[in-house]
Write a protein that binds this DNA or RNA. Structure first.
Lengths: 413, 413
DNA sequence: TGTCTTATGGAAAGCGCTTACCAGATGGGA
DNA sequence: TCCCATCTGGTAAGCGCTTTCCATAAGACA
């Protein structure tokens, strides 16, 4: 195929000018200051189909409809001004013929509103986060926005990267879920995250945080926190458990410095103390199923070493989240111990898919999906007129005592 | 506050010209052909902070660095041309001072490449999908792209909407997971979905489908299917089960017309027939936990009505996915029946978080995360040079026989 | 019939970038 | 010393839209 160098200087001959664009990739466009390429007529047929290779543009539609791009825009993409019905129909027709799909990027640039909302989670495969994601997604749909997803493994550095990426994409709001780390080795990354978030807010971005506010971010109107009363709930849980459980308590917690876990530990201890019980031992392990499993192995050892017939020696294990609790349960089972027969076990979160787990796990119910929804809505511009900027409708949880913490009727044997 | 009507006709007085943009929302910009607004000096201080309200632009950086935007672009956003080190440094410095973050929308428009990948799932809270999402996310990160998420509840109509939305955003590829529906009431929506997908492909978009190719989409190079050998695997499973199980089989399937489920049903039946067993009864329920539960209630009834001491009457239940199997298990337990004591139970997918479920569920392992990764990579332009365009590295599953299908040693009682 | 207001379509600027092309500078070889 | 190839930064066009402003047409009213 003979193709001339592209250039506006080349005089248009009888050859047809054709839309070329960058190869045939989707987001088409070329940057020859003149993106028309010249092809010889004989070759034309072969490329007939490629003609449509470039997504059609508003002006193409306009041209086909015989109107100006302004008019086409007005009819196709809602505006205060509504062109005459007859014209509108023609435009719509043209758009249909061409299979026109507005370029959201261009619209975003022109209107400076992207309809994007960024979601940052530790791990989308974790049921805790996927439940929240569900809520975010639902809220986003309701507001006709799209969600951009980023997973970070819980490292502040990656969270920062995600914030930057979202900021670059001009997401209108960012929802960030997942416990903050207060560990010293994360301090630097945390500061950077805060700075980035802060800048994002100052630039008008809205952010919704699930859990603790991120340290160092100015609490502006665009900064909304969905506070989960972890401490209070853990305290409630401990108190309720202390009611029936007479033996020692052990807490299987996440790494020290993981805010959510820490809060739950503190609350639980406080609850014990309220009930006149001695403080619980705390084991720190990774904040996931395997962490729980490892802790469970340890504890199994301890349980076996104790006098298993003495009710006052029976252990009550509190894992700071459900997934860890499951790990603990698996480990105990693996070691031939039974819950609640040989030990009580409680978790936190009330992950939905655990409802069929047996023994049914005592835990603290958190309305995860609702939390996601609130964080999204809270970080939405919709929430402007006449609402307090503070933590909107605080999330409430509920202690759920189930089988896993029932005290066996008789002494164990 | 006194503010004049904006307009270029207003002569600049001693008043300061200030960047205003649309409110103080992030993706700033205004369309007064002149987006400078005039504020009286006294009011100025109050808005001092807002000055930075508009994210800074490349030209601002360029100006500050005393270079042209072209140069700034070249140093900041990688190009073949690298300006002199001294200049580059100055630009970087300026960018830093201004807290410049490139506007990805604008870049996308100019470069016509968005780095976006769209993911369509039925339900992100479903562990099956969240596992796939995990893989997609991982692959996306690897290719430095971002994922846009859409959930559809499995309805083709919403899937179509999602495709359109992604096309509008000029996502470079779309990964679509979740069973296709072949039900007649979905036929229309399916056609539309196919048409949309087809157009998307023709426009150069890449699509990766998990499971069955979508009917009616031309199989072009940009269309990649990650085929899951559902039928074969279900067949394998049936054969293995038939080895030890002597009683009747029942299949708890999703709605008729759900491709994935249908395939598994067909495969299972074939496996039974291979093994010389009569075909299984099929119960159709929703393709989720509750569907399984309902079916389980039914089956419990049937089990109880049968002679529970006769091994030849013992039921083996195959649920076409793990989540349904869990529902069945829950229902049986609810009715006082035990697995595998009173019936065998098998699922499909090998959802990760079921590993701690007891009795351990026999199932077919599918590398879900890998599937997500493959679908993403497969629909990536990276996969261009010298690779077959067909279904790349077919996914392989594996039958996992576990406790839930063990035949009790003695007759039941 | 003439003037004024109100609708309506179009021209064009601009959103924030990238990049083809250009012009000026620099250096090497003849 | 002159010419040419090479390098570098800048200029400006253009990505695909939206929206302001303008011109014109159409009524409204006196």
């Amino acid at each position: 195929m003979e193709s001339n160098e592209v250039g506006k200087r080349i005089p248009t001959s009888f050859m047809m000018t054709r839309s070329y664009a960058s190869g045939n990739r989707f987001p088409a466009g070329s940057h020859d200051c003149n993106n028309r390429m010249l092809l010889k007529v004989p070759e034309l047929e072969a490329f007939e189909e490629e003609l449509s290779v470039t997504a059609s543009t508003l002006s193409e539609v306009a041209k086909l409809a015989g109107v100006s791009p302004a008019t086409a825009s007005r009819v196709l993409n809602g505006s205060t001004r509504t062109p005459a019905p007859e014209i509108a129909e023609r435009v719509r027709q043209a758009a249909d013929t061409l299979g026109y799909i507005a370029n959201a990027q261009a619209q975003a640039l022109a209107k400076s509103s992207t309809g994007l909302i960024g979601l940052i989670v530790h791990d989308i495969a974790d049921p805790y986060f996927s439940a929240i994601a569900q809520g975010v997604q639902a809220a986003a749909r309701q507001e006709r926005r799209m969600v951009l997803l980023a997973t970070t493994n819980g490292t502040p550095a990656e969270e920062k990267d995600a914030v930057v990426a979202f900021a670059a994409r001009r997401a209108e709001s960012i929802v960030i879920a997942g416990s903050r780390s207060t560990r010293s080795e994360d301090a630097h990354a945390n500061t950077e995250l805060a700075a980035e978030l802060d800048r994002y807010c100052r630039n008008g971005g809205q952010v919704g945080v699930v859990g603790k506010p991120i340290l160092g971010v100015a609490e502006t109107d665009n900064y909304c926190t969905i506070t989960v009363p972890n401490e209070q709930l853990a305290r409630d849980l401990a108190q309720e458990l202390a009611h029936t459980h007479k033996g020692p308590f052990v807490i299987v917690a996440g790494p020290e410095g993981l805010a959510t876990s820490d809060e739950r530990v503190v609350g639980f201890q406080r609850g014990l103390s309220d009930a006149g019980q001695p403080a619980a031992d705390v084991v720190h392990v990774p904040f996931n199923r395997n962490g729980g499993f490892d802790a469970g192995i340890e504890l199994a050892w301890r349980i076996k070493a104790s006098d298993q017939s003495a009710l006052e020696q029976r252990l009550c294990i509190f894992a700071t989240n459900d997934v860890m609790a499951i790990g603990v349960a698996a480990a105990l089972r693996d070691r031939g111990l039974r819950v609640p027969h040989d030990a009580s076990l409680a978790g936190f979160d009330d992950i939905e898919w655990l409802r069929d787990f047996r023994p049914a796990l005592s835990t603290v119910h958190l309305p995860l999906e609702e939390i996601g929804r609130l964080a999204t809505l809270g970080s939405s511009n919709e929430r402007k007129a006449g609402e307090e900027p503070g933590p909107l409708s605080p999330v409430t949880g509920k202690v759920m005592l189930r089988r896993s913490t029932e005290t066996p009727h008789s002494a164990r044997g």
